[in-house]
Computed example of a mutant assay.
Amino acid sequence: MKQLIQSICELEGLSVQNIQVLSGGDINQCFKLTGQQSPKVIKLNSLHRFPKMLRLEAKSLKELCLTSTFNIPEVIACGDYLQFQYLILEYVEPGTPKTQDWPKFGEQLAQLHQTSQTNFGYTTTNYIGELPQPNDTEVTAADFYIRQRLQPQLKLAQQKGYRLASAETFLTEITSLIPNRPASLVHGDLWSGNYLFHSKKGFYLIDPSIAYSLAEFDLAMMQLFGGFPASAFEAYRNSVNTSQLQLKHLDLFKLYYLLVHLNLFGQSYFSACQNIINKYT
């Protein structure tokens, strides 16, 4: 693997003296590169198993950077080499946020969500975890959530043998609960593993799954697995018009991520999915 990384770095004109393994989740292999230049991170995965995944990540990071809200790691290079795809990023020295840092996170997230457009979707299908995430254009939030998020995951769950009762009734019942407003740019996979904190520069966002969607998706994911203190949510609420948000119905948006986890990791997420469907039918 080190020879592979050296070859990629030579191709990209980078001098590397040390290669250190980093934790990179289930999909990517990640390494810290040090040499004559400032430290970098390289992410590697299968070119054929996850087509264009890292190119899409690079595109998403650049799009988030344009919002001038959160810090975003600089994209150094992206490409294919042999059977691998690679993404080289600025290395961010990780730190631990203090209590007083978290309101800034909420304020920055509110600013990110102000990046808006009329229609819902994105320029291309991307990924949520290792699953394809469709992003065809939809005019309403309800159509986007049902057609581009819930129905593909429910169909996959059925193919995997998970029988979620009343799913079709649920899709009919929830339409009136999905806010009718312009789409917001969202990170799309905002759990506690997808931010970094630098002691001097503040919060960075990483590993996005962006779309023009609803702010509730990011808020729901933040709540689902924890790791974000109440002060971040409070600062967010103080920065937006909460009357336009469905804060009482974040479970509705958690369902998407729970279905993704059901399809990726199995039966242990079934009851949580069924409970939310039952709640709204």
Rank of each mutant, 00 (worst) to 15 (best):
F84Y: 15
F84K: 10
F84W: 14
F84C: 03
Y86S: 04
Y86L: 07
L87E: 10
L87R: 14
I88Y: 06
L89C: 08
Y91N: 08
V92M: 08
E93F: 05
P94A: 08
G95L: 02
G95Q: 10
K98F: 04
K98Y: 04
W102N: 07
K104Y: 06
L109H: 00
A110G: 12
Q111L: 12
Q111R: 14
L112I: 04
H113P: 12
H113G: 10
T115D: 05
S116D: 07
N119S: 15
F120W: 12
Y122N: 05
T123H: 14
T124A: 15
T125R: 12
I128G: 10
L131Q: 11
L131I: 01
P132D: 06
P134T: 05
N135R: 09
D136K: 15
E138W: 03
A142L: 03
D143A: 14
Y145A: 01
I146D: 01
R147C: 03
Q148L: 06
R149K: 13
L154V: 02
L156T: 06
A157E: 03
Q159Y: 11
K160F: 05
G161W: 05
G161E: 02
R163F: 13
R163V: 15
R163K: 13
L164E: 13
S166M: 00
A167L: 00
E168R: 13
E168W: 01
T169W: 01
T169I: 03
F170W: 11
F170T: 08
L171D: 02
L171Q: 00
L171T: 08
I174P: 10
I174N: 03
S176K: 09
L177R: 06
L177A: 05
L177C: 00
L177H: 04
I178N: 06
P179Q: 11
R181S: 10
